[in-house]
Design a protein around this nucleic acid. Sequence first.
DNA 1: AAACATTTGTCCGTATGTATA
DNA 2: ATATACATACGGACAAATGTT
Lengths: 220, 220
Amino acid sequence: MPVPNDHAKPIRKTAKESAFIQIQQWIIDGTLLPGEKLNDIELAKALGVSRTPIRESLQLLEVQGFVEMFPGKATQVTAVEKESITELLPPLAALQALSAELAIPLLSDETISLLESTNKRFSEAVHAQDYFSAIKIDEEFHQIIVDTANNPYIISMIASLQAHVSRLFFHNSIVLTQQSIKEHDQIIDLMKEGNTATVSSVMRDNWLRAIDEFNNLQSE
Amino acid sequence: MPVPNDHAKPIRKTAKESAFIQIQQWIIDGTLLPGEKLNDIELAKALGVSRTPIRESLQLLEVQGFVEMFPGKATQVTAVEKESITELLPPLAALQALSAELAIPLLSDETISLLESTNKRFSEAVHAQDYFSAIKIDEEFHQIIVDTANNPYIISMIASLQAHVSRLFFHNSIVLTQQSIKEHDQIIDLMKEGNTATVSSVMRDNWLRAIDEFNNLQSE
DNA sequence: AAACATTTGTCCGTATGTATA
DNA sequence: ATATACATACGGACAAATGTT
């Protein structure tokens, strides 16, 4: 497996950064279980650094809601409650819808082709029932729109919400339906037309539908 | 003015917490100027603590976008650009609109009276041309709705966006118009009726209008 | 109730990397 | 280009607080 070299960052990679990324990944993929107690000394040894960068990472993770710190008492991984999807998706849907609106005047031909080819890859993954890839490509598709809207506040809020959604999906393995493919096409068309109001509501529904799909999953 | 005692937190107040709150306040009210270089040793001496809680506070402030850290190089207060209001308000408006929608089924009679009395106080402040109070009361009004919606993700995102808006207003002193009073009444009525779609768009416009008012301010 | 074990919070010294002369 | 000054990143020890025996 090729080592993911971070050619995107000309600034030096601090121990805190790598610790943060690693611990976050462990929480998302379930290596660190919900409710698990986090001992900074253990983590420090496991990652080959001192307590300082670990502590700093944990504090950042607390802000993002992945870790809960009780000063003087304990630090633990937050719970994963399936109900939280009903709290996560409405704001995520609203921000994604807003991104689509804001992206419209900033759309280039290149971006549109990129959206189209990404949705094609998404469609292929869905048909191949490769749902893991489908989820990642779906994320890519929406990320293109968010990046195009180019609003730093939206970008950072969506990144945080998306991380939580990813964690829920990892723990519950959601399945994306064929309907998303059509909706993505519709979103592309509406953005090309500059139909702000409609693209906003389609985008919103595209995301909110995941609440139902997620809940259906639970009852099966 | 009643001191906002934090009866919600029975946990101990750490040095990091107080440092964070103090530094954030200094940035918002302009004591620490945009672009100013932050020396952790100086801050530590000023706040009577060591460098560690200062460093940790600065990192949290970085996540919130109030400071910028260049690892190994420097740490400084982020710039306050008046253009950023056009980036802050759209997501804030979208989240406030969503809050109003989500609050509807959770509205109690007490909450409605509270909204009405708060808007009355807002109206009095506007008429008395006490614009500083008006801004604070306007914030209260919207906070009631956000708290009623009771979504932890929305609450935290709005708090962060609101802090940036406050900083801009502090540096530019915006004036709230009479139109807000009417819109607030309208919002209350629409929420009572359960008119989700309309309250959402009124709320959104209520916030987006501030962009124009802000820009008009600049050109006077 | 008091002393202990554990964990977190804080302090400060040192190393490393950056910019300037 | 080298050296010097300086700021930040990291490490490890100590202090404070909590829960337990």
